[in-house]
């Protein structure tokens, strides 16, 4: 059986940031309590000329800059997001055109709260495994918004990553994947509404923690692994605290989690979250490293992956596109007034 996995990857995080303490001050909340409580120091903010299409294109181009793959051999593009710029007109069409993969190309947009990007990876894996395509591109990106004053306002941010899935010169083999899905109304946005709504405290135990721990255990049982077998573990990160807590519940250490935990510095990039976390791990990974990844999407579901880094990681010129650490460092702060101006310009009143 041939090895299926990641052939190249790229990411993009907008340069603007707002500090949690500035949002807290704007609402008369205690900045220290908020920042420590959520484990988020600051979050990324899209500029007014950035959206999921532009972030996806930048990430896709970064993935192509690191390899010599002819874009015409990418035969499928799936973009996962909950903030696609159009309600009707797939983001993938724009990405396909912008990277030169059109017109003999299969495209669809995915939506599953914060796990649409990992669903895109699974689809690409299946297409490659069945020899229907040579390469597929899976993207997870978001420019998520939260209602002013809502607790989610401290977290909802922007960013994304793209992965080229194939079976030649695979830098990280995907050994196994599985999913866990139920009907759990923890977070939603009704059609035509501007901001999402959520079930408050209901978002924790029955939603995030149940789905991630259940799915993670199913995966480890399937492959016969234990938490200590992995060098890195990436969990969905709606705030800086949940991923560390779920890691502990499962028996992973904070050392295994930290390279893929970016929420404290960029916020929750929704569909981009575990995707950027995985990109951050691949930025530093060495042959033989084993990676555990579990996404979570409200509604609710989780996708889990067991991966092994191969010798081809050393042949991939990672310096040809910005590393996650460079994207995090390249930042400019905006104040709450500028942040709300950008947000208001996005929507019709």
């Amino acid at each position: 059986m041939k090895d299926i996995g990641i052939v190249s990857y790229g990411a993009h995080i907008p340069r603007l940031r707002i500090k949690s303490s500035d949002i807290a001050n704007a609402w008369g909340k205690d900045p220290g309590t908020i920042t420590n409580g959520l484990g988020i120091i600051e979050k990324s903010v899209p500029s007014i000329d950035q959206d999921v299409a532009t972030i996806s294109v930048e990430a896709a181009r970064a993935a192509l800059a690191r390899c010599s793959i002819d874009p015409q051999t990418i035969e499928a593009i799936y973009v996962g997001s909950e903030s696609h710029p159009y309600a009707v007109k797939p983001t993938g069409t724009i990405v396909g055109e912008a990277i030169g993969a059109t017109p003999v190309l299969q495209v669809a947009d995915y939506e599953f709260a914060c796990k649409a990007g990992t669903a895109a990876i699974q689809t690409c894996m299946a297409f490659v495994k069945s020899d229907m395509i040579k390469y597929g591109m899976a993207i997870g990106a978001d420019t998520s918004q939260a209602a002013p004053g809502d607790a989610l306002e401290y977290a909802a941010s922007a960013g994304g990553a793209a992965f080229i899935i194939g079976s030649e010169k695979v830098i990280a083999t995907i050994n196994e994947t599985c999913s866990f899905t139920t009907d759990t109304p923890d977070f939603w946005r009704r059609e035509g509404r501007k901001y999402p709504a959520h079930g408050g405290r209901f978002t924790g135990a029955p939603a995030y923690f149940r789905h991630i721990t259940s799915n993670a255990k199913i995966l480890m049982e399937k492959v016969g692994s234990k938490p200590e077998d992995y060098n890195y573990a990436i969990f969905h990160q709606p705030n800086g605290k949940f991923p560390l807590k779920v890691a502990k519940m499962l028996g992973f250490s904070s050392d295994q989690v930290k390279q893929g935990l970016l929420c404290p510095y960029v916020g929750n990039t929704y569909s981009g979250a575990v995707m950027i976390g995985l990109a951050s791990v691949l930025d530093v990974a060495k042959p033989g490293d084993r990676i555990f990844l579990t996404s979570y999407g409200s509604g609710a579901g989780s996708d889990a992956f067991d991966m092994t880094v191969t010798k081809y990681i050393n042949e991939l010129p990672r310096e040809k596109a910005p590393l996650i650490s460079q994207l995090i460092e390249n930042k400019k702060y905006v104040d709450y007034a500028t942040y709300t101006k950008y947000r208001d310009l996005l929507y019709e009143e």
Partner: peptide
């Protein structure tokens, strides 16, 4: 790659 212009809130981007 950026957004250049939008035809208002209902038009093409």
């Amino acid at each position: 790659f950026r957004k250049i212009q939008e035809d208002g809130y209902i038009g093409a981007i």
